[in-house]
Design a protein around this nucleic acid. Sequence first.
DNA 1: CTTTATTTGTTGTGTAGCAGAACAAAAAGA
DNA 2: TCTTTTTGTTCTGCTACACAACAAATAAAG
Lengths: 408, 408
Amino acid sequence: MSTTPPIPARHAMTTKGSNREDIRRHNLSAVLTLLSRTGQMPRSALTELTGLNRSTISDLVTELEDLGLVTESEAVTTQGVGRPSLMVSPAEEVVAFAVNPDIDAITVGVVSFSGRVIAKVRQTTTVQPAATTAAETANKLIEQLRKDLPANYRIAGIGVAIPGQVRHADGVVRLAPHLNWVEVPFARMLQQLTGLPVYIDNDASLGSLAERDFGAGKGFREIIYLFGSAGGIGGGVIHDGIPLRGAAGYAGELGHVRISDSPNEDGSGLTGTLESLVRRDVLLNALGLINADDEQLAAALAADKSAKVRKIIEAQIDALAIAVGNYVNIFNPEVILLAGYLSTLFAYDSDRLLSRFRWSSLTASQDRMVVRQAALGANLLMVGAAGLALAPLVNAPASTQLTPVRSK
Amino acid sequence: MSTTPPIPARHAMTTKGSNREDIRRHNLSAVLTLLSRTGQMPRSALTELTGLNRSTISDLVTELEDLGLVTESEAVTTQGVGRPSLMVSPAEEVVAFAVNPDIDAITVGVVSFSGRVIAKVRQTTTVQPAATTAAETANKLIEQLRKDLPANYRIAGIGVAIPGQVRHADGVVRLAPHLNWVEVPFARMLQQLTGLPVYIDNDASLGSLAERDFGAGKGFREIIYLFGSAGGIGGGVIHDGIPLRGAAGYAGELGHVRISDSPNEDGSGLTGTLESLVRRDVLLNALGLINADDEQLAAALAADKSAKVRKIIEAQIDALAIAVGNYVNIFNPEVILLAGYLSTLFAYDSDRLLSRFRWSSLTASQDRMVVRQAALGANLLMVGAAGLALAPLVNAPASTQLTPVRSK
DNA sequence: CTTTATTTGTTGTGTAGCAGAACAAAAAGA
DNA sequence: TCTTTTTGTTCTGCTACACAACAAATAAAG
């Protein structure tokens, strides 16, 4: 008998039964997931990673090939004794559109199955686009991108990243403060314009997914993602490799968590929250900048040696450290990813952040935990949003419909 | 085509393949899970709830019966047209021991598979029992209870609820402040004494599980559980029906989250945390009580009308409201369960708590969310700890070994 | 009281999908 | 050139589920 059996990973799961079809779907999905994460992989690696039999993998890959989702090719490099294994690659012709409406611009991209951004267009807008305008602009940009795609490409759908709260039952934007959208059925609007299936979620949540699959969170299963932008602070939580969504999809509002008695208000009117204390605009102001991206900000920061600026930034780092400590206590993550403005703060004085944070969380929870800067840059939301639209395909390869580029 | 396809529940799961055995295990587990939660159930209900075929359920139930895990009996009450369905019940002879070492006493119980506490003994101790003493006492009590069990009973194992942080990789108590245990391999110690498999976890986490299965959290999949005791404030998070454990098992330290600039220290030396502001002992003191259980406290509270006491308790309610608001923003739960001392606070002035909390969390996240008092009383930890020990059996009914009461 | 409709348990058959074995193919090394 | 190693292919077998046919047990209708 084993000394101390490990606590079972899943204490209780679903009480739904499963049958042969579920197995097949799960195995097809497992293979396709591996391929979409790594780009390409020999068949022998698939057998090893899935634990399935060679003959089964052969069968699965054949089915995926028939579905047009993967291609097989002779191995170019051989790495050892024995017959070389066939290389399996995700089909480049399967793509998804990514849409990101924001205050100043609407960005639309085409992203391939393997996470490569094929094309991207950005249309700047006048202040605060109305939802209908945004949907029409997005539709126009999608049509434009669609024209340039080869005829044999197929589309999984559209993924939308929203700077706000999205109800995932029906894809309605519950509240997006900066866009001034309230209860906007954006998914439905865009679906009706484009005829494509539309998937929608909060931007920070999608960012955390992209980082998990292709960025600094690769290989981790417990991730806290904190993203600072001009609009405020958003968050995403990955638990056991899966995003935490909550009852309606609003989970992960890590910026709106109260950590102080300060009367400062954040973008949602809550006082003493992380977002109310860590403010990009305050720092820009102190540096005499009006509009600057994160690179320009970092440069200005490196140049400025004034005590005033240092004081501001240190106060913000201290606030961030408290929040990070809180999330370590709550989630016991493997890694905390700081993105955007928060990444800049971390880079400015990581020692201060780390030492303060160690002071404000339980020591046990800090075991082997790391704080990191996020890795993905400008294409973050494109990859994340497209990943959302591609998820149904990856989860159920055989039963997901794809739309040809040229509609009949 | 559907208008707006719902966001897939699981964005990405494991990349391990599955085979026929996995199906069988999953289905046996699904049936047994349903039975252990509801006590008993007709076969027809099992077919409906699992979605499996009648003949398959017949097969599964037969196997579980052969394993001695369930019994079938003629339905007593008939409720409608048609042939009455056979009633399936979890076997009463399958039990687990529950152990809960605390400052003042060690409690051990026998809990049946269906969540019934068959017997319970409590041995008071002198201050702060050393781990070895606690293990020996627990072993003695287990032997005592074991003697009284009928010979045909079988034991799944021992579940231990620890008031502290438990590393779930090896069952070591990382830190239990009130017991003054540091890096104690309690699971291994108890396993060596008893010869039974030992499972161990944090007490509040186990409390949340018990409430999910048998208490106020029944039927919910997104639960925040906050428990106030003499020792401090613990928490448990249930996400998608599964407890949130984090990288090492320390997740859910909801009492040690900083919500204020106050210099008050909590039991772990962190300042401004929920636990530092919501203190049972402070209230007891103000009421002139030395040692009182929650009932006595509530009674004293009802009798006392002094402004001083009201002020103390209102400050604590306000602090609790902030924390509750934070957790709503972070987790977007369906229900928040307040247990122990926090339940008393809630009962004292629920309106104040609710209105304050609504003020400190995002409105969207409050949609259809409820705050409730926990339902389980004194047997909470017994049921939770036993559930932990029974989990492997429920998850893999066919391949889990049970130990006979009389060892050969 | 008999007949009918309804629901459930039982039994036998069909089948999808995975494992495993045997064999062939393609590489490296002796 | 021969051996060893690794992988792909093909065939067989088995398991576990769905489905259909039938039997059993009830309530309702006549």
